[in-house]
Design a protein around this nucleic acid. Structure first.
Lengths: 209, 209
DNA sequence: GTCTATATGAAGATAGAC
DNA sequence: GTCTATCTTCATATAGAC
């Protein structure tokens, strides 16, 4: 989670870790290089020796964070079973990432700075939602071949996108608009259940029909 | 749209309109009172004569914006026809608001400043999504009574929430992460169609069965 | 109420010693 | 590479004249 071990070591790594914390807590504009320098325990000039300015420090932090997200999503463990169970597992794993303090913080800051750093926003989309969509699409392809689901209208990619949006939207909006009020596990279970149920009712081919 | 005629007139109104533009363009932290004062064509002290500080100016602007949103949502015109057509109309009207430059800008800044101004984030939720949910829930209640839809599992409120999330999530995320790339009308039609189709497949009671 | 001028502090970034 | 000390700019906010 707190890796950023791409090629950064020593003071540079300290600085990046501090920058990560400061930027995710305050956003870009409200964050100050003083906070970062202070939290990292280095002087101003050390900071500027490693990173040319605040912008570069910011983009480095966020891009690293996106990479971490991609890795976390790719590492999701689940067994290929019946579609409903598989989707439930994937939904829980995805929400765990999205609703984590880091997940919410990254979303906040990326969206907030989307105008100033449009490239970062696109990188974020590709690193997070898009990777998840690809994983889901793969599962849906298998399920469609097995006759568990009917995607003749929608196509696998649209269906995968639809599903993760179904899973993410309400919980994420609730967390973003009600900070300091983390949802209970029961609430998350309910959200997942509604999403999976809706998706299966719409496109699933129940054997019991 | 650019009203804010609550009790503000003359210079105060000029200041608020300028503040609205500046805050929605730059966010809270990156916005400066100089920009606002300059754009309003007044001096610093005039600004501070009307508003005690930057925070109050900000909350005044955003709260007014939320009120405007509520009014806009409440004014949505549609005819009570078949459920599918009604939902399609409501979805289009809602997306028109959410995906407008102002809608996206308000969302950005409210989410970005959710930690610093938690109350504002909740006000936003109540003024936007919640009002829309209430409108949809009312339509769904009628439709359920008419046997057009089966909400025995979900309940009207959950179903309404589900529907607007289904409508909003993907288009909004796309617009937020791909600024300066407004979606085409055809794309919006497709999104609406997927949302409505999914909802009706999951919970609709087609007569042709 | 409204302006010009200014106080005060803090931001991002650099110079120069070690 | 790293530090202390400093430069420059610009932010929020206020004082005092009209």
């Amino acid at each position: 989670m707190q890796q950023m071990n791409h090629e950064f070591t020593g003071k540079a790594l300290q600085i990046l870790q501090a920058a990560r914390h400061v930027f995710l807590t305050h956003g870009f504009a409200a964050a100050t290089t003083d906070m970062i320098q202070q939290e990292a325990g280095v002087s101003k000039s050390t900071m500027y020796a490693h990173f040319p300015n605040k912008e570069m420090l910011f983009t480095t932090v966020i891009e690293a964070e996106c990479t971490t997200f991609t890795d976390t999503v790719r590492d999701i463990q689940f067994e290929n079973g019946k579609l409903r169970e598989t989707l439930t597992l994937l939904a829980h794993a995805y929400l765990k990432i999205v609703l984590s303090p880091e997940g919410l913080a990254v979303f906040r800051v990326v969206i907030a700075e989307g105008i100033r750093f449009p490239n970062l926003a696109r990188v974020f989309y590709l690193a997070g939602p898009q990777v998840m969509i690809n994983m889901i699409a793969e599962q849906l392809t298998h399920a469609a071949a097995a006759g568990e689901i009917d995607l003749s209208e929608l196509g696998c990619d649209n269906a995968a996108s639809l599903f993760i949006n179904l899973v993410r939207s309400e919980p994420q909006l609730q967390c973003l608009t009600h900070p300091n009020a983390a949802p209970s596990d029961i609430q998350v279970d309910q959200w997942v259940n509604i999403a999976v149920t809706t998706f299966m009712r719409a496109y699933g081919c129940e054997q019991s029909k």
